[in-house]
């Protein structure tokens, strides 16, 4: 655990001022809005900051540390809102995203810096009480060439909070990483949402690793 905390601290130091990609919550904001995202799951830790150019496109910088493979990715990311479905009581979104940059070994991994790129898609559906999402991403480059992950999440809000209240969600995420020692991971988590801030804390019962996600919309 101490190693994990030290690693997080070192990553934050290394990447301060950088940004990351969206996990499962609104990767495109309002026109002119900035969003800061931190994501830590059983495989990696990422920082992402993006700026929403228009309601369908955000551009940002992603720094991602793959803790399992000791590699670090840095590069810009674009996220495109392909389609948003509106209803009186629901919203659903389909996103595509892609990024390119450099990947290199860290923490004793001697892998040289090489070009890398990723591409993926996300979909979500949400009411004030129910949530479902899916995300898939493939990455090419460096020692993790050809890596693929996908994750699906479902959630339930035990109560409906009004504007500005503390919103609480109970969620379950199942991820699939074919290259991992445990290809399928199960992570129950709780999401707290208030105003412009979102915080998620969970625990991977597969790997005994924490999930810690934070998002702030400026």
């Amino acid at each position: 655990m101490a190693r994990f905390i030290a690693a997080i601290a070192s990553l934050i130091c290394m990447t301060s001022g950088f940004m990351a990609e969206p996990a499962m919550a609104r990767p495109v904001s309002y026109e002119g809005g900035w969003t800061l995202i931190e994501e830590t799951d059983r495989q990696s830790t990422a920082l992402w900051v993006h700026y929403t150019v228009n309601p369908s496109l955000s551009l940002g910088w992603r720094t991602e540390w793959d803790r399992q493979n000791d590699v670090l990715f840095n590069g810009p990311q674009a996220t495109w809102l392909a389609k948003r479905w509106f209803g009186e009581n629901y919203q659903a979104n389909l996103y595509g995203f892609a990024g390119a940059g450099a990947i290199e070994g860290i923490n004793g991994n001697p892998a040289d810096r090489e070009a890398a790129a990723f591409i993926g898609a996300m979909a979500d559906w949400e009411t004030r009480r129910l949530f479902a999402s899916y995300k898939a991403r493939g990455l090419e480059g460096g020692t993790v060439d050809g890596s693929f992950m996908q994750a699906a999440r479902v959630g339930f809000a035990p109560y409906e909070g009004d504007t500005g209240d503390l919103h609480t969600w109970l969620m379950l995420e199942i991820d699939h990483r074919p290259d991992a020692d445990d290809p399928v991971g199960v992570t129950p988590l709780v999401r707290f949402f208030k105003g412009a801030a979102l915080f998620e804390a969970g625990w991977s019962v597969t790997d005994d690793e924490p999930m810690l996600n934070f998002q702030y919309r400026f």
Partner: peptide
């Protein structure tokens, strides 16, 4: 407004 389900929606419109 259609699609208003969370505080991020409120933030977006309040800011705009």
């Amino acid at each position: 407004v259609l699609g208003v389900v969370c505080d991020f929606c409120a933030k977006a419109m309040n800011k705009t």
